[in-house]
Amino acid sequence: MNIFRLAGDLSHLLAIILLLIKIWKTRSCAGISGKSQILFAVVYVSRYLDLVTTFISLYNTLMKLVFITSSFATLYLMYVKFKATYDHNHDSFRIEFLLLPCFVLALLINASFTPLEVLWTFSIYLEAVAILPQLFLVSKTGEAESITSHYLFALGSYRALYLLNWIYRYYAEGHYDLIAIFAGAIQTILYCDFFYLYITKVLKGKKLQLPA
């Protein structure tokens, strides 16, 4: 564990908490893509299957449980409790266009062809693009509430911090995982446009609004 990795994990945790707070406090999931949240749930379940096979550390186990549980809690709030506020019409991204290619890619490019490893690889590829329905929703409505922007910033920062963690681990430990690094770079790049808007607008107290 190094400082980048810890900061990345905490940023990830913060993102999830911000999202739950936003939905709970406003009693609404307007502006949040249920499609992205479904994809994140798929990511966590397919990645953390090793919870039942491998014990790494208490920290590792607890964080995995928190991610899986909070992900399903978010889905519950969106699709059951505050279903009426869900922005169904704007959340029209077709997730099968992400799920299928990621799965095929995981079958083709993986570190070892075992069920757990293929599913882990699938989750890495899927996570890289899982935010696309959310970004698509923001681009369709042309704006995002400030708390939604904070959520997206924390979520994007997490993988950017992981990139620093991987660079650190390469030099400090000689450890690297090309699949995670490549997918993590793609994931971070997808947020760049949003990062720019966040820094130039939201941090200056303005609402995140896309140019018409």
């Binding site: 990795r5 994990d9 990830h12 090793d50 096979t53 491998t54 790494i56 550390s57 590792n60 964080m63 995995k64 991610f67 570190a111 070892s112 490893e117 882990w120 992981y162 963690n165 450890h175 690297y176 995982d177 995670a180």
Partner: peptide, 10 residues
């Protein structure tokens, strides 16, 4: 390179 003990990152 996959560590035999699994992936330690989240």
């Amino acid at each position: 390179e996959v560590e035999e003990e699994g992936h330690d990152e989240l």
